[in-house]
Design a protein around this nucleic acid. Structure first.
Lengths: 116, 116
DNA sequence: ATTAAATGTCGTAAGTTTGCGACATAGATA
DNA sequence: TATCTATGTCGCAAACTTACGACATTTAAT
């Protein structure tokens, strides 16, 4: 039942939410940063870089793959994980659009009570 | 147990994940867009704009308030909801930094297999 | 003082996420 | 061929999320 009403929102809202959800865990943020820090694809032990069990990291990797933010190619014994930089750029634009729209009004300051 | 290991990540990663999580549902994206579209604070029936029950919308509003993306001031019988544009701007910068970092490497194209 | 309207609080059902250990599988190498 | 290493798959327990109805609270009007 949990996501029962998702279909009632626009594609744009759903897509933004979907990506946001993929980034909604520090481990997944860390994984992307780690892949970015190596300037290349990674074969292997990402789990060793994180304070989590191997299977848990694998699970996070699956989630990132599910939204296509990263790719994974099997290469013999190891797997090669890559960032999908093209999608990341696209998503960046989408978020920028969202934030610009949201900040355009400049309604309330940070401390002041609002004066409705 | 679910968020047991969160503390093991950096503040930056946690903050980004926290905001991403707040945006990780289309209803919450829609709420922010709705508040932005009115160029002012809103007293009242946000639920009427969304395909969800009043209490459910209220719950989403609470979550957005919890990360301080929106503010709510009680004003007599109604409540005045505002975007925290200052925070939104800050978060926008944070996301931009993250995405720039992530796309800097430009490792793999969208279709090509990676060449590890 | 009653009552109507607008919000907030609680509880609950169903589904999802997180984190992990145990087991399965597939190349590589002796 | 046995076996080591690197990954993938399953299943489980605990916690979290989503969605909603029923009830409480608060303010404004009559």
């Amino acid at each position: 039942m949990t996501y029962a009403k998702t279909a009632a929102f626009t594609q744009e809202q759903q897509q933004l939410a979907r990506v946001a959800k993929a980034l909604a865990h520090p481990a997944r943020v860390a994984i992307i940063q780690f892949l970015a820090s190596k300037q290349t694809c990674i074969s292997g032990d990402i789990a060793a870089e994180l304070p989590l069990a191997r299977t848990t990291v694998f699970q996070h990797l699956q989630e990132l793959k599910a939204v296509d933010l990263i790719r994974g190619e099997i290469d013999g014994l190891t797997v090669c994980y890559c960032l999908n930089t093209e999608l990341l750029q696209q998503v960046h634009q989408q978020f920028t659009g969202f934030f610009l729209e949201a900040t355009a009004g400049a309604v309330c300051g940070p401390e002041d009570a609002c004066s409705c």
